[in-house]
Design a protein around this nucleic acid. Structure first.
Lengths: 325, 325
DNA sequence: ATATTGTATGTAACCGGTTACATGAAGTGA
DNA sequence: TCACTTCATGTAACCGGTTACATACAATAT
């Protein structure tokens, strides 16, 4: 690989001149410009970003910290983040934490020592202080943590209200809610929304807790359906859980939506692929990703943020696991 | 951030001594070791990997080049690659090319100038020569390209034979095959396997081509089912396409597997989530990923490879879109 | 004529590590 | 005692860029 010195020698100028040409900074004569341009072409010179990073203490890399890349919600998000990052010349490094605090720390440490320019965090392993102490631009995505770190998330409570209300409108008399782990704010808000509506309507309901995992969700639902066969509606905290619900009802020989109606949350493409396709509270996943990435880049480029916290509205996507209009 | 100089000053030794401590290389007295250890603790010093990279021309980063992260096959693969990479201390950078040659070139260029240690390529945008000219360790994953670059893939032809044979065994008389783009070797091999069996059994068949995309696959299948309503079996080149097939048959009011049987290819988790769950030719996706990553790291560490090309066997996973035993 | 300003370029220090080499002390054998 | 090895440590060059600063010349102002 050719270095800037090789180019300088080939063009008969100093490295400073070549650098000025590369960065279009400072004075540069037409002749020098021409000579350098030629030399670069002749040697197929590409500037070395590591050397550049060392001096500038930046890397044009963004970290995206997610709990599980095999959960389809996250690749969707990653895709959005990447699309924006690319247009601004950044490379995205995706980090799977598996909700493992050590793995998360390890990754963040590794990225920091590579001068990562900023992080988008879609996990909740560390405390607000831990994140702030990193001293690099941050955005919380999907999950929030305190006021100081800019965030992008859906209006989870309203979304959950939307879904629960719809189940009641469609005639559900006894609704089960599969909520996510209590430690996850997102899941908690959805639970609150559910609670708002069933309380208001005095609808009979049961709540079970499960990880965002098909099998666990299926087992929990089997158990509760066994206990309360009268349940005629299920509202889950995520689409992946709704798949578990679908599996459970199917294995019990129940018909969806005739015997029991199901609504998920997220709006991942998977929902449409299911048969019956999944009625869900759809988040603007792609928009969340792009917004988060833009917010991060704004911080990196030290532009002022007019707003720190963004809450996106959700939308009820009526498909086949509810009785429809 | 503390630097090695700060540590040296704090410990009253030279930077060389600190470096020797960090790398456990060269002679080091017990006292010096103790002093350095203390200084590192006191300053919370973390070595800077950029500086290290600049000298060593390595980065402990691996690139994983994939066409589309929202296709669930790839996150699964990424997960496997990452798991292995992590145990060897490497960070994985995932690059989505969108099958866009410029995007792929741009990414690879960016990674190279960051001293990426090696690449796992699961696309087919560039030529063998282009890849080899990069002068860094490579592994082709899922797709192969010439003999010189080590590769890991499934026995696609045998897999396709397995699936096609099973459809015939289950009574299919007229099978449609949705094949992937001709330019993709993987898809071509599956097509060949299909052809082998239908020719041998003199089974009536039709072939359509589609991208690895649900909607396109659905449209193509609707069209061919319209033309040949007698079709009673569909073998698709991927699970994602099989979802399209399922959607198509459903929209025509056909019952699966009673009226028409469907077999996919890949074995992504999605298949199990579908209702009916998808019979498929399952690849050992996780194994492919780990194997590819190990192969790459072996090259990076300049260990000899006993074997260059790995072909993994596939497995027929009988689920609900075929009539079963 | 001299001072001032704008243009153009080169030298060398710096970013934060690694390591070749020099130096010196302590221990061993002849 | 001297030569030689082993151990311990420091100095400085190097990786490949960037940029502060010095220098030099031409054009303009005074």
């Amino acid at each position: 690989m050719a270095t800037i010195k090789d180019v300088a020698k080939h063009a008969n100028v100093s490295v400073a001149t070549v650098s000025r040409y590369l960065n279009k900074k400072g004075y540069l004569s037409k002749e020098a410009e021409q000579k350098v341009k030629e030399a670069i072409g002749a040697l197929n010179y590409k500037p070395n970003s590591v050397a550049r990073s060392l001096y500038h203490k930046t890397s044009k890399m963004l970290g995206l910290v997610i709990p599980d890349i095999t959960n389809p919600f996250f690749p969707e998000l990653a895709r959005a983040v990447e699309d924006v990052a690319l247009t601004y010349g950044y490379t995205v490094v995706i980090c799977n934490t598996d909700e493992d605090i050590d793995k998360e720390k390890h990754y963040i440490e590794a990225l920091k020592s590579k001068y990562v320019d900023g992080l988008i965090i879609a996990t909740h392993e560390l405390s607000e202080k831990d994140y702030l102490d990193l001293g690099i631009p941050l955005v919380m995505l999907d999950r929030t943590i305190g006021e100081a770190i800019p965030s992008v998330r859906s209006n989870n409570r309203e979304g959950a209200k939307l879904g629960t209300k719809y189940l009641i409108e469609q005639g559900c008399q006894f609704i089960a809610h599969v909520r996510g782990p209590l430690t996850i704010k997102t899941a908690y808000d959805r639970y609150l929304g559910f609670k708002d509506v069933v309380d208001q309507h005095q609808t009979r309901h049961e709540i079970v807790e499960s990880a965002f995992d098909i099998d666990e969700s299926k087992q929990k639902i089997l158990k509760i359906l066994n206990e309360y066969p009268e349940i005629d509606g299920i509202f889950t905290s995520s689409d992946v859980m709704a798949v578990g619900a679908l599996k459970a009802t199917q294995s019990l020989g129940l018909h969806v939506p005739e015997d029991i109606q199901i609504i998920g949350f997220d709006g991942i493409p998977l929902g449409e692929m299911l048969i019956p396709s999944l009625t869900t509270i759809s988040q603007s996943i792609y928009k969340m990703g792009t917004l988060a990435c833009r917010l991060l880049i704004k911080q990196i480029e030290k532009k002022p943020l007019e707003e720190l916290h963004f809450v996106l509205e959700t939308e009820l996507k009526i498909r086949e696991t509810t009785r429809g209009e």
